[in-house]
Design a binder for these strands. Structure first.
Lengths: 159, 159
DNA sequence: GTAATACCTATAGTCACTAGAGGTTCAAGT
DNA sequence: ACTTGAACCTCTAGTGACTATAGGTATTAC
């Protein structure tokens, strides 16, 4: 993950931000954003002030993108990157981070599942009449009509 | 009790923003925010410029809170509220909105489930060695090690 | 009367980007 | 060599849905 070499050791092929973005599955804006917040090191520039990357950066960015896809926060990704940068370190911390994240994901899954069940139930009961008799509106108006016992969890958990 | 209500039809009991918030499960700040963006109408004020609510507002706010809990966006909630305000309307639109939302929820569920499986698999394979051999880092570094075929979906879908 | 609590407005901050304005540089074709 | 057009640059502001803070006023309990 240590990759910012403006020195071309051989005729190594440098890529621009567009290709880097394509290769790693994000947008150039996002790459610049990641550089800005320090997830990526400042890229070396060519004569015309444009960022030049090596293929090593594709790997680092893929790592970031992948971790984000897994739902890790940017701060968690920052920690993961730091760990990955020191491969001799024991992986306990990484493991802990992943386990904590798994717990969060499972909690979300549980809530989202109950939301799905409730939505399905609401839709199935809709007789196609007027809004006044609509079960969807009913359920949303009155918590007691829910099959769930507690709250569904904050909206932030889902959306 | 300085009870100068805007509309004292009878001795109906008006409540403050704190009680409204408690009753409906959100914070006073959120109530004011909802008023600001027009999800709640401007509340009448007492002599001291403080918002006074009737119990009807508890229901409306509960509706909003509930719909948000179900993952509906604020804009969707706005639409739902408009529909609920006209009970004679056919509920087709409400139904459509709910169904569209169900589809989104199901897509999220699918992605979140695959993320959970992957995280679990990663954690199970971690032998507790050094970061260099850690499967978690491996999986995050290299997309090909994933059991999933495609991308997991954007981070916005999950977190 | 006083002290604690609840309330008010207005503004800025959060997260993780995304979009736009307004300019410069690069690569390809003529 | 010139021209077009895509890609790139910086800087700033906007998104969604709140949340927090500062600095004040009102209400309530004792």
């Amino acid at each position: 993950m240590n990759d910012q070499n403006p020195e071309p050791a051989t005729t190594e092929h440098y890529i621009g931000i567009g290709e880097l973005a394509r290769e790693s599955g994000c947008k150039p804006e996002t790459v610049r954003y990641y550089e800005q917040i320090g997830l990526l090191p400042s890229a070396p520039r060519n004569e015309g002030n444009q960022r030049r990357y090596t293929t090593a950066t594709i790997r680092r960015l893929t790592f970031i993108r992948h971790a984000r896809d897994f739902g890790f926060s940017v701060e968690a990704v920052r920690e993961l990157l730091q760990m990955a940068d020191y491969p001799a370190m024991p992986c306990e911390e990484v493991d802990t981070l992943a386990k904590r994240h798994l717990a969060e994901v499972e909690a979300r899954l549980a809530r989202l599942t109950s939301v799905r069940d409730e939505l399905q139930r609401m839709i199935n009961q809709c007789a196609g009449g007027s809004v006044g008799q609509c079960h969807i509106i009913d359920v949303l108006s009155d918590h007691r009509l829910c099959h769930q016992t507690g709250p569904h969890g904050g909206a932030d958990v889902i959306g």
